[in-house]
Design a binder for these strands. Structure first.
Lengths: 195, 195, 195, 195
DNA sequence: AATGAATGAGCCTTCATTCAT
DNA sequence: CATGAATGAAGGCTCATTCAT
């Protein structure tokens, strides 16, 4: 019953923010980015609109935080050794994890794509986004180089495009997406990348 | 003194509709689907908001027309023989054309992706969209079957995902996209699809 | 095939106007005064909006013409002898005719009431309206005076209010209105007005 | 510094709603239902258009609330004993009160008539309206039956039509309406309803 | 830390009216 | 006489954001 310590306040604050983010993702998923209002988020989160602005200084701010947090999560599963080298096994692990993430975070990915398609938002995000992606890309390039690919950069592009494409298809219609078959098919790239 | 002939009215309408569609795509490209308002379109097209509703009965209506017209265009370049069979040569032709379309219709593609991400819109579009895609998909399935692919449906999915992925990357940053290299890399699929 | 005479043009004009008025009444009845637009009227009448303005200089103008024409019709059935005196028989005839009119002109009456409830319109109509009603009222006053009513003016007011009330109820729900019974009940006033 | 209590918020809301309703009625009275816009209401009430939607979820919603509240008020003065029987004295009391209401609520009555004439609105209101009117009508029917009327239902219809007619005339021109004389004349019905 | 009333700019849409043809 | 494209003002409504409490 003693007054809360600063740490406790911080924890409460952090929990609230997470809760708000989850609610936001849920509504964006259900109704689309365009139809998601601050009011709805606040109402479903069980707090007042005013309080929401206590946690995020604007709607944009909130969206950005959600986006970057999601990216951080994605990155964290990649290259678990942090040694900058990707073994075939790690690649397969990555494919698995990638789809796990897709499956458990459909809501996030829908938002991710929506936001990417807003040019002005993109400008703001791009820098940070690129910095995040760089090590990811570099590792893939190395991986394909080591596999003897003729043009490792193009190969990387292809893989990333494919992954984004799958993600896109998956979020549009998760029920009919042949997850397992696609995964198996992708494994082959870890064996036979070099034609 | 006599009223315009029916033909004249038709011409005026046709021209205006094209003009409006172009302006709409331009703004959607520049500012994102979400930030594109009827006001902006009318202002940039140099017409009154009211007139816009003389041509499209709602904003949704306008978007649909643009979307489906774009799809028709895309479909029309595919399988030029209309024989339902895709030769390797036709496949390469398709890849070329596909990227030509991407390059000359970036604006359209941004809209395409944006619209796909709107849950409510999707419901309305999905049916018609699926019907349009079906023959396209079937041809690809046949193509991969004939090439001896183990699972032609998955193979088709992969190609389509990849193409969507490329399209997505391309519209996000057309300047840095290695169009020619990617194209060349894709040609290889027409030779060695069977692993 | 010779060019039309001025008279012929006038006739065509008059016919057109009547047709337009009928269409207007129909739509106002179906959709309410508020939701009746010039466009709808023109379309259903099979003419262009522009032409409509050739016949009526404004929407208001058209409404007024419809209203006053309807009033003229009503007045014309009243006191057929034009002798300023109302016999009991004439009174019964009037009651009959009144309801016939209601029945065959529901559309008109709905408009009549709607217009009456627009204060600004009322101001414009009131003068002409009152002049039209005056002889009608005077005859009723005489009628009740002759019948020995204590306060013939009040009696007249009552009758007119009742008639308006019936008209109102009738246009709201013509199917369930007990026309015949009400008529019979009203006949009694021509016998026993004096309590 | 602490937020307002729930009671305080409730009070603010209640006051605002009343204020909005009054302003709405005033403008509808002055300009007619058709010419009354949300903008005008908000401007005259000295609030923003947006705030109005904080209190009523649509213009229709607002109108309904005003209409039904008015009806409740009207009903509440009728048959004060709530015993379902109307004595002559109560009938006279009702006549008095009815005209008091007319006088003090002209604005409401204009709205009432206007709304009744809107076909689409009527459909929505009709059910609730009829349910409200039923006991009122039943009591009148009993009253006339007990008075020995030949056809109590028709008699009730007549009275109601007359009252509506008076109301209609009164709101059109309250200054010249002979309220007292009409009232006196109506009292006679409570004595001599049986012809 | 917390509330929700209040704002104001902007949204999509409608419509009486004008006008070149 | 006749057309319908075009306008512009207004309509109902939404929403991110602010602020007194």
């Amino acid at each position: 019953m003693s007054p809360r310590t600063e740490k406790q306040y911080e924890d409460i604050r952090e929990e609230r923010k997470i809760q708000i983010k989850n609610v936001a993702l849920e509504i964006i998923f259900e109704e689309g980015f365009q139809n998601t209002s601050i009011s709805k988020i606040a109402k479903r989160a069980g707090i007042s609109k005013g309080l929401l602005y206590n946690y995020y200084k604007s709607k944009e701010d909130m969206i950005y935080e959600i986006i970057f947090e999601g990216m951080d999560n994605l990155m964290s599963i990649f290259d678990p050794n942090k040694d900058g080298i990707l073994t075939d096994e790690e690649a397969r692990f990555f494919i698995d994890e990638m789809f796990n993430m897709l499956r458990s975070n459909i809501k996030y990915w829908r938002l991710y794509f929506s936001v990417m398609l807003q040019p002005k938002v993109m400008l703001l995000i791009q820098d940070r986004f690129m910095k995040m992606m760089e090590p990811f890309m570099n590792i893939l390039v190395s991986y394909f180089k080591q596999k003897g690919a003729e043009n490792p950069i193009i190969e990387t592009r292809m893989v990333v495009a494919m992954l984004d494409g799958f993600a896109f298809h998956f979020i549009l219609d998760p029920k009919h997406f042949p997850l397992e078959e696609i995964k198996k098919r992708l494994y082959e790239f870890t064996k036979t990348m070099k034609p």
